Amino acid sequence: MTYFEGFIVPVPEANKDAYRKSAADAAPIFKEFGVGRHFEAWDSDVPEGKVTDFRKAVDAKPDEKVVFSWFEYPDKATRDAANEKMMSDPRMKEMSANMPFDGKRMIMGGFEAIVEEGTDRGDYTDGFVVPVPEGKEDDYQKLAAKMAKIFRRHGANRVVEALSNDVPKGEVTDFYRAVKAEDGEKVVFSFIEWPDKATRDEAWKKIMEDESLKPEGDMPFSGQRMFWGGFEPILDTAKARETADA
């Protein structure tokens, strides 16, 4: 299955255009390194959580928004080779010196897909970060696969769940701290791509009202420490290629 490099980035709201330009300028270089799809989405409907949330994950300041982003690769070996090239390429050093955000608070890591439903892209994205206890990975995968089909029936274009595989600890922030991970827990990086926000809003309303979907027994993850939010795409190289090929 697909391998993902997932990112959560705090960006000053005033730097939205600069961030989008920076990402667009970098996209051809990342493609050269082996990135199959480069996706960036801007904070649109990101709720505040009692325990965790996207803003807490990156210590976002009042004037900052959150970007939910990922790279797609065919496998981990391709991703590892790409990272090696990124570390040694002088163009990356130049880009790092001119980033329109605080790189110390960006979090990133490698995730291996455990669920992939659908292939179509979307114009609105729900992002999730979930702590999964050790030994519960199979139970989580089964639940996620079931829910993916339900999301698809309600109009989702694509559903992906990816389990932490190579997620480093950071000096300031990281995925583990973001979900207050306990010893032995893995982290899931997940997203749902919808045709638009209206479809997403209507789908969630129906799913939340469906009594048959209420959980029974213990869930294979900590719901209190899971966080999610809605994001509007600001860069999608897959769509750019589709347009170019049309």
Rank of each mutant, 00 (worst) to 15 (best):
Y3C: 15
G6N: 01
F7N: 10
I8K: 09
P10N: 14
P12G: 15
N15R: 15
R20F: 03
K21H: 11
K21I: 11
A23V: 15
A23D: 08
A24K: 11
D25C: 09
A26I: 10
A27F: 12
P28H: 11
I29W: 13
F33C: 12
G34Y: 14
G36N: 13
R37Q: 12
F39D: 03
F39H: 11
A41F: 00
A41I: 01
A41V: 07
D43S: 13
S44R: 09
P47W: 12
E48F: 08
G49S: 13
K50V: 13
D53W: 12
F54M: 14
F54I: 11
R55Y: 01
K56G: 10
D59S: 11
K61G: 07
K61H: 01
D63E: 15
K65Q: 15
V67F: 09
V67C: 14
S69Y: 00
E72W: 00
D75Y: 04
A82Q: 04
N83V: 06
N83H: 12
E84C: 04
E84M: 12
K85P: 02
K85N: 04
M87R: 15
S88I: 09
S88G: 14
S88Q: 15
P90G: 09
P90I: 06
R91C: 13
M92E: 13
M92H: 05
M92K: 02
K93L: 06
M95F: 11
F101A: 12
D102M: 04
G103M: 01
K104S: 11
K104P: 02
K104M: 09
G110I: 04
G110K: 03
F111L: 02
A113V: 00
A113F: 00
I114M: 00
G118T: 01
D120C: 02
R121D: 14
Y124F: 14
D126W: 02
D126R: 15
V130I: 13
P131D: 06
P133H: 00
P133E: 10
K136L: 05
Q141K: 11
A145S: 07
A148D: 00
R158F: 00
V159T: 02
L163K: 06
S164G: 13
S164Y: 02
N165T: 10
K169S: 03
D174Q: 08
A178K: 02
V179E: 05
A181R: 02
D183I: 04
G184H: 04
E185C: 15
K186I: 05
F189C: 01
D196F: 09
D196V: 05
K205P: 01
I207M: 15
I207R: 04
D210H: 09
S212E: 13
S212P: 12
K214S: 10
P215M: 05
G217Y: 05
G217L: 08
D218M: 04
D218V: 08
D218P: 07
F221L: 06
S222K: 12
S222H: 11
S222W: 00
Q224T: 03
F227S: 07
F227E: 10
W228M: 14
W228N: 11
G230F: 01
G230D: 02
F231W: 08
P233A: 03
I234P: 01
L235K: 09
T237K: 12
A240F: 06
T243I: 07
D245I: 13
